[in-house]
């Protein structure tokens, strides 16, 4: 592996300071399940790796009436182990997490890492998008927030500025009665990246119907289907989704199959979602 130096600052502020000093040559290390592979394959060549697990506050997982607050060092399995999350109204998210990689990988991999890695097929992103999740960002000029979808700007690209990191992801508690679901298509039932994945959210209180499709475009697609909340039209939703997705032909699947599977997943989620 390409050599680099390693530091484990003790606070978010210290991380920001070191990030800013090091300029573009530093990389943040959360679980490392993406980063270590990328360094090994020379996709990235950092001179400094900043382990963010030294900052206590980033390991915090909060779950209360207002929603979830998931620190950057919180591993994915903790979301499944914490009842307030796994039994809370975040079904699409926990479904996505339980289908992400293998159990052992999820003992290292973080939710924030999955988002900031900005892979088009990141499984947690469509659920986070329909759940209106926001990324809290710390940087040299203080903190700011961005909706998850706005954070991601392209394949492996984010809108984080120099010296910035995502400290946590906040998922607002959905309104009572909200239902959400997630489906993922892969080549084996074991761990595999998504050919396509879809999350759907239905919020009866606010009359919202939101759908997000991943693994097809550089950045997951969000569809606002509120207009059909009262009378959901599945085939119209399918058509809208297919209008927006631009999958590619690659080793994992063809364009044709990806599009068909997006349609199937949309239909299945609609069928599963409660009617009223």
């Amino acid at each position: 592996m390409q050599s680099f130096s390693y530091e484990k600052p003790g606070s978010t502020a210290a991380i920001v300071a070191r990030l800013a000093e090091a300029g573009g040559t530093a990389r943040l290390l959360a679980g490392g399940t993406d980063l270590i592979g990328q360094i090994r394959s020379r996709l990235v060549k950092p001179s400094l790796v900043l382990d963010l697990k030294g900052a206590r506050e980033l390991a915090l997982l909060g779950a209360d009436a207002s929603g979830l607050s998931i620190g950057a060092a919180v591993i994915l399995n903790r979301l499944l182990e914490e009842r307030a999350v796994s039994e809370g109204p975040y079904r699409a998210l926990t479904q996505a997490v339980s289908e992400l990689a293998s159990y052992n990988i999820r003992n290292r991999a973080t939710l924030v890492g999955n988002v900031t890695n900005a892979s088009p097929c990141a499984d947690s992103v469509p659920p986070l998008v329909v759940l209106d999740a926001r990324a809290e960002i710390a940087g040299p000029s203080g903190t700011r927030e961005l909706p998850v979808l706005e954070l991601i700007s392209g394949v492996r690209e984010t809108r984080l500025g120099p010296g910035e990191l995502v400290t946590r992801i906040r998922v607002p508690a959905p309104a009572p009665g909200t239902w959400s679901g997630f489906l993922k298509r892969k080549r084996v039932r074991g761990h595999d990246l998504a050919l396509a994945n879809v999350a759907l959210l239905r919020d009866p209180e606010r009359g919202r119907l939101r759908m997000s499709v991943g693994s097809c475009n550089p950045v997951p697609v969000l569809l606002d289907l509120d207009a059909m909340f009262a009378r959901p039209e599945v085939e119209r939703a399918v058509a809208l989704a297919l209008e927006r997705v631009r999958p590619i032909d690659d080793v994992r699947a063809s364009i044709e199959y990806r599009r068909e599977m997006v349609a199937v997943m949309v239909r299945r989620l609609f069928a599963e979602a409660p009617r009223s």
Partner: peptide, 19 residues
């Protein structure tokens, strides 16, 4: 490469020794 770190099974090839 599975080993246990603080009781959790992890893929040792995806972890740095310093961690």
């Amino acid at each position: 490469c599975t080993v246990l770190l603080d009781g959790r099974p992890v893929n040792a090839c995806m972890v740095l020794a310093v961690e």
